[in-house]
Every structure is written in C-alpha cells, then in structure tokens.
Design a protein around this nucleic acid. Structure first.
Lengths: 243, 243
DNA sequence: CGAGGGGTTGACGCCGATCAAAGCTGGTGG
DNA sequence: CCACCAGCTTTGATCGGCGTCAACCCCTCG
C-alpha cells in the first residue's frame, strides 16, 4: 500500500491541454454539465485535462493544493492513512464523480489521499474557478450537492457491506459492488489486487486471496481478459445472504 | 432493534408550534442560519417545531414524506435495514445536523430510517420550502453542501473505525466518538445500549457487553449519573493503538 | 538466469460468535 | 410493600473462522 505511493513520486502525467467544457462529449456526466457554453469564456483560471498512469497519487491527504478533479475515465481510490501507517480505502470512484470537493467548504487540505487505480483521465479544476461559477450559476451548487449525496450513499453502502457477515460474504459484497459500478459493456470489471481488496473490507490479504481463489474454482468468478473478470451475480447474492 | 420501531407506533410527539427561525436562539447552528429575517415572511408552507421521546421513528426508509429535519437537541440514529431484517446504524447525528437531505436531490424516499436515541427536539421543514429558499438564497445551497460534506466525513470516520482492529479497539473507538461528538459540559455522554453499539461496529451484543464491562472494571469508563458516563480518553486512545 | 513481487496454499492458535444461564433493574399489579 | 415479570446486561463454555507465519508458485523485469 505504501509502495504504490512511492511509485508515483515519478508520475508521467500526460497533459492533454485545456479542457473544452463547452464541447465536452461527456458533459452530461461531468461536473459542469448544464452550465451554458458562455460560462467558460471568461474564467480566471484554466481547466486542464490530464491522463495519469495506474498508481499515480493525484493528491495527498492534508496537502494544500487548490484543485478539484472531475473523473472522465478510470477508477480512483480514496485512501485514509492512519498515523500508524495502515491504510484503509474508504471509497472507489469512477467516471462522472468529482473528488476534492471538501475544498469548496473552506477546508484547508484534502481529507484523503487519492490514487489512480487504473489509467485515469480527468479534468483539473481550480477551486477559485468553481467558486466563481458557483456564484454565477446556482445549478452548479445543486450539482455539488448531488455529488456529495452520491458519495454519502456510497459511503453508507460501504459501511453496511463492511460490518456485515463473514469474510466470504464481504468479498462477495465487494465483487457485487465492482460489478454494479465499474463493469463495462461486457459485464467485466477490473479485479483489484488482494491488498486493495483487503484494505477495503478490513480483512487479511491471505483471506481475500483464499476467497477469490475459491470463487474462481467454483466458476463464480471468471477471467474475461488480462485482469478483467466477470462474476455470477446471482451466486454472489446468494452468498451474501447465506454463508 | 426491530422492537424499537414497533414501540414508536405510539408516539406522543409534542408540537411546540411554528418555528420562529428569525428569532431562533441557536440559528447559527441551524439549517437556515445566515438567511435574512425577511426570508421567512412569505413561505408557502410552515416550519414546525417538535419534541419526540426516545425511540421515536422520525421517518422510515423509502417512505415518501416530504420533510427534512434540523436537529436542535438530542441524538438521532440513521439505520439501514437489510432485507433479512438485520439493522446497521450508519450514522449518529446531533444538534445542528440536518437529516433527510437526500430528498433535495429529487430522491423519492428517505435512504435510512431515522430514530430518536434520546429526547429529540427538532424543526420539521417541508422540502418545498427548502427548495424555495434555495432558489432565493445561494447561501442555503452552500449550507446544504456543508452539511453533506460533514456527514460524508462522519461516514468516512465510521468506515475507518469499523474496519480497524479488534473488538476491544472498536469499542474504544466508539466511546471516543461518543465523547468527541456527544459529551456535554461535564464530559459525560449517553452510553448507548449494547444492541445499538453492536449495530454500529458490527460485532455481537455479548462481545460489546464484555468490553464495556471490562472498561468499567478498569475504571476507564465511569458512571456519571443515570446512563451518562465519562471515559478516560487517553486510556482509550492507547487501546485503539495497541490491543 | 536470478531476483523480487504478487498470488496461492497449508498449519496453527486465538479472537469472537453463538448458545445458555444467571444477575439486575424498572415497571406492574395484587 | 412485596412479588413477579420482562428486558437488558453480564458471565461462562464451546467451537469455528480468520489472522498470522511460512512455504511455494508464477510472472515480470533487470
């Protein structure tokens, strides 16, 4: 877990240039959807667009940058790091989600460390810009509220999944969440490494490995390609209910 | 857990009359703080003020009422009820917090069941009223955002506490949270019943009981009066770190 | 080819869930 | 005022699940 952070000290982010929010093909998903095109013409600070490789630390907890990010593609994990060095993943976010919103409430630093799980494609938005747009367009305020509400719902789902049942049931829960939120058009999703899964559901790495291996043997979890897998949803749901 | 819900079928809520937000002595805490006094003069629907006894169900998950609530006094638990009847407490909220905000995002029903833990004193605000005020006063939007952000932070703290350490460590965590957020001027806080604590940290009732009993014997937890207790914060912090 | 990192599997011991029973407390009714 | 009861808490005994330690496999990379 700590390793991944070090890795990213050398990031080779690819700057894709200024974002063209007014011509963004996935705007309805994104943070500035519903704003009129004219809104972007006289911004004080630019909105940039980047691609980062897996493992990149987008920001660190308590660091004092002044950007929020809107995820266009890929998966980001929000990590809580305890003083003793142990890490917990508190949330997993995908396309359409915005991260770093805590800065809008006047917080001086980020509340988590954000790390790219796979290749991530995102827009980097200065806080000042967001505030400026918030003043002019009430609809953006509404949008921020929705984002927060969604993340709150996610967190709640997490809490329930976490504190419920045996290790096997929790791993099943996790796979169902991966399937629900991160599956592509083929129903396949990235299977996180054992360490990340352990950090999410709060059990030992070896236990996760055992459960995943069991699911694979039982064909409940099937390799689709590379590290993408497809799961048998009904079987997993059954497991979450009874051992 | 199910019992408490039944209990509340007979509630004797006391209606304290219309809220006078413009003269509210704790307005800076409350939902409508910073709105000008004139804002309340021409509301379509009234804001009422109630007191409910412990155990009252304020609203049930998925029910279709159209109110959000601002807590003036007392403690409210937000409960997730699984299809198999098991309950998990996902959040504990006190004075100044607003609940039911998910309705503002156009959700058709509440996401949790809200139950009064002790005697609760709250303002009942029609969604229509909130929307109306949101349009006129951008500052209210900001306030909603802050509320959500706070609850998100709480949920994250919960996740970390939940998935970390032994049963003893988790109970210690829980007591520290109670002390931090719900202690009165004498540092005393309500000691929840074992069932509620178990529902929060995801362990068995008997285990909670054992831990609490141990803490009492070790004088880490001392009775202040009735069901209010005072805890030795440093001792508990020590426990959260090492067994 | 060797080294290293991630995944899998086995063995063992302990924590905590579960079942069971016995205090404790407050409330009710005789 | 006491007896009784119901619900909550505490405590004990037992057993299974999971954390821990360790070995081994597989793959990638230098």
């Amino acid at each position: 877990m700590g390793k991944q952070i070090e890795k990213s000290l050398c990031t080779n982010a690819e700057w894709l240039g200024r974002s063209h929010c007014d011509r963004c093909h996935i705007r309805q998903l994104m943070f500035f959807s519903e704003l009129p095109e004219t809104a972007f013409s006289h911004l004080l600070k630019p909105i940039d667009h980047y691609i980062y490789p897996p493992g990149t630390v987008l920001y660190e907890a308590k660091s004092q940058k002044q950007f929020i990010y809107s995820i266009r593609r890929g998966m980001v994990k929000l990590v809580h790091e305890a003083m003793d060095g142990t890490c917990r993943i508190v949330r997993l976010l995908g396309p359409g989600a915005a991260i770093g919103l805590e800065l809008l409430d006047g917080e001086s630093g980020y509340h988590h460390t954000a790390i790219a799980v796979d290749q991530v494609d995102l827009c980097k938005i200065p806080v000042a810009t967001t505030r400026q747009l918030q003043q002019d367009y009430a609809t953006l305020c509404r949008h921020v509220g929705e984002q927060l509400q969604e993340q709150l719902d996610l967190a709640d789902q997490w809490i329930v999944a976490l504190s419920t049942g045996t290790a096997k049931q929790r791993v099943a829960q996790l796979l169902l969440i991966m399937d629900e939120f991160f599956a592509d058009e083929n129903q396949s999703f990235i299977l996180l490494n054992r360490e990340d899964m352990a950090a999410m559901i709060g059990i030992a790495v070896e236990t996760v490995s055992r459960m995943i291996a069991t699911f694979k043997r039982q064909k409940i979890l099937k390799r689709y390609k590379e590290n993408r897998y497809i799961c048998n949803v009904t079987a997993l749901q059954e497991i979450t209910r009874h051992g």
